[in-house]
């Protein structure tokens, strides 16, 4: 227990540093503006619970970008400035440093992000009336867990990178662009290259591996889990896109399990609960890799 808590002063310092930064509050404003998307399809599908859907939109694109930008410097920045010598001179292991950084930054970002979610909740309440509070809180919790996963990824990169510019390039070029922004295109291309099967996004093949690939990114997994909670359908696309796909007589380029697979033919690994495992994997695997590297060799 004592070992577990060695990093808590570091975590408190990190949380304070982030929560008093301008960047995190700018992110709050941006994701409120980004998340508020009233739509007929959303209202038809969810009624007043469209407000919980706003939280998912808020968690899309800008949130991952913002969280990664608020995390990538956490360790490499201190290595280059020299302040890491204070932390590493204290009675903590290097693993404690990683955990303290991640816990502190997660709290420091998740707090303001929760504020953004509740602002959206307030707007939704006024606009659309009373929503299901359990559903709404569930969406907030999943989104905050996603923040934790992203902080873990950003901090892991920060612990391994030797230079700040390398860390910035990696979070942008290896995480944000491919895994958040272009993952659908990348995963369908990979699928076509490997299997030789072309993918028409309007009529995708009922392929388990293709649908699994689409949800293997942290972003895809977050949307699978949040769509599960919203009850709109089993998909790595945004909830409104899923609702559109499941409307009769509509054509759209979303990958929705219920629209593609015949009932009873859905592979078990496409169950939404697997999305939770994928998210956990994204929190743990980069961190384990970073711990391995950061605990070895020179730290300054």
């Amino acid at each position: 227990m004592i070992g577990l808590m060695r990093w808590s002063p570091l975590a408190r310092k990190e949380a304070r540093t982030v929560i008093t930064s301008k960047g995190v509050w700018l992110l709050v404003i941006l994701i409120v503006l980004w998340g508020y998307r009233p739509s007929y399809i959303g209202w038809d599908g969810l009624g007043a619970n469209i407000t919980a859907g706003y939280v998912q939109i808020a968690g899309t694109v800008l949130l991952p970008l913002g969280v990664l930008l608020l995390s990538y410097q956490s360790i490499v920045g201190e290595r280059t400035s020299g302040s890491v010598k204070f932390i590493l001179g204290l009675p903590v292991t290097r693993t404690d440093v990683l955990l303290g950084k991640i816990a502190g930054r997660t709290v420091g970002i998740a707090g303001p992000v929760a504020v953004a979610c509740f602002v959206l909740g307030g707007i939704g309440l006024v606009d659309h009336g009373v929503f299901n509070p359990v559903l709404f809180f569930g969406m907030v919790l999943i989104t905050l867990a996603y923040v934790g996963v992203l902080v873990s990824i950003g901090t892991a990169i920060s612990a391994v990178a030797k230079r700040t510019v390398t860390a910035a390039g990696t979070v942008f070029g290896v995480i944000f662009l491919p895994l958040v922004l272009f993952w659908t295109q990348i995963s369908t291309t990979i699928f076509t290259q490997v299997t030789g099967t072309p993918v028409n996004p309007y009529e995708p093949p009922a392929s388990g591996p293709l649908f699994l690939l689409l949800r293997l990114s942290p972003h895809g997994a977050y949307r699978v889990v949040s769509n599960w909670l919203l009850g709109v359908g089993n998909s790595a696309n945004t909830y409104s896109h899923v609702l559109t796909k499941l409307e009769p007589q509509t054509q759209t380029n979303a990958y929705v399990v219920e629209a593609t697979f015949a009932p009873g033919t859905v592979p078990l690994y496409l169950h939404e609960a697997v999305g939770v495992l994928i998210l956990l994997m994204w929190a743990a695997v980069p961190l384990g890799f970073a711990r391995y590297h950061f605990a070895r060799g020179d730290a300054v």
Binding site: S81, S83, K85, F86, G89
Partner: peptide, 14 residues
């Protein structure tokens, strides 16, 4: 151990 390192930087926000 107490350490006063060389070429350090304090935390500007604190």
């Amino acid at each position: 151990v107490g350490i006063l390192p060389d070429r350090y930087r304090l935390y500007d926000g604190l």
